[in-house]
Design a protein around this nucleic acid. Structure first.
Lengths: 209, 209
DNA sequence: CACGTTATTGATCGCATGATCAATATATCG
DNA sequence: CGATATATTGATCATGCGATCAATAACGTG
């Protein structure tokens, strides 16, 4: 039996405690989804009374929205850095597809799906979702514009192409959340699709590892 | 003021009452999402005591799962009939993309997104989701196989291509749920993407209206 | 018309959620 | 060392959820 008894939490600076609570929310969201980001669950994880969580947050809606934003912003930074290490737009685009569809980020996918659903009842979260979608789109659009300028990507609307690409990726990942066992096949045909979308020859986006 | 007073409901046959409850759940899900499919909300909508809803259903999880299945199965039938009226695989595939991305089915999209999220905590719903995804995939796979046999679709794995296609569609629709205002542009580039995926010449899937 | 079957209901339980507030304990400062 | 500021807490409220069950009322049948 785990003993859920809780001793009084050590007194800490507001900044430190606030950060601990945010971190507890982040871990909880990645492990069990945004639905599990609840006043009491966070308090238990942070080893703190439920009231303290409320004390440091204007509302749970806001905390959920912030948690979502943190998780996704981290992922964007991580992937952007990953892409920056590639030599050119074709490699970057191929690597983008591969890394986002390799099944290693299902925890983030769950957060996305739940955010879409919960956003209809949590306006702050909905705003965060739109914001992070825009951030993702900016990254992808940058790659496509670069490719159009220097690598033969044929598109007159890089912004729309970026949205299309993100939609494809999100949909495939969301699907894989339910249809277990196809993690490997998840991105098997997306290279051909994207090549067709951007007027590239077949195989243009193949991995170079 | 709407008067929420409820008179005793007329006595009806179990079959009829059961159908009324299922219908109330269906409407509620389409109007407000699966999250709103709740014991009391359905009872209110059906003009019946909450206990009666419980009386006719083994559990709310089961009712939610059935409601989801009904809604999606209806949509599949509707779209399948719509496709059957088209002359050939190319027209069918183009029409499939157009009708699923024209933004007129956002109510169903919400149901899908919520089902993905809720399925993690409702096993019956998760099973329904897998079932309906398979049904959708079968329809799409049929079109692709037909196209491979008679219309030059180039693919060695119609099943995988069908999954890919559904993923793209679902993702774009889910995105549009949050990013209002791009309903018209939603499917602007998917024709090119699918043409690339299936090795078709550009414009092969253009509408013939 | 009386009676029995059963559709329907009100009341209630247990649990979980977010939120509020006076009370308490602790760190720091004078 | 004492006092003040404040981080922390327990208790509690209001709300909503699913579920259960004895009691009630309506229908159909004999």
């Amino acid at each position: 039996m785990s003993t859920p008894v809780r001793t009084r939490a050590a007194r800490k600076s507001p900044a430190e405690r606030s950060a601990e609570i945010a971190e507890a929310a982040r871990v909880l969201a990645l492990e069990q989804g945004l639905t599990a980001v609840t006043l009491r669950a966070i308090a238990a994880r942070a080893g703190v009374a439920p009231a303290l969580v409320a004390h440091y947050q204007p509302s749970m809606d806001a905390l959920v929205a912030d948690t979502f934003a943190t998780i996704v912003a981290d992922e964007i930074d991580e992937v952007a850095a990953f892409l920056a290490a590639r030599p050119g737009p074709r490699e970057r685009l191929g690597a983008l597809l591969d890394t986002l569809l390799d099944g290693t980020r299902d925890d983030v996918t769950i957060v996305w799906v739940e955010a879409w659903a919960m956003g209809r009842r949590n306006e702050a979260l909905a705003a965060s979702v739109r914001e992070q979608m825009d951030a993702w789109q900016a990254v992808v659009q940058g790659v496509i514009e670069d490719g159009a300028a220097t690598a033969g990507f044929q598109t007159t609307d890089a912004a729309a192409a970026a949205w299309q690409l993100l939609g494809m990726i999100d949909g495939l990942n969301a699907q894989a959340l339910v249809r277990w066992g196809d993690a490997s096949a998840r991105g098997s045909m997306i290279h051909g699709a994207v090549e067709g979308m951007l007027g590239l020859e077949r195989g243009a986006l193949a991995a170079h590892d």
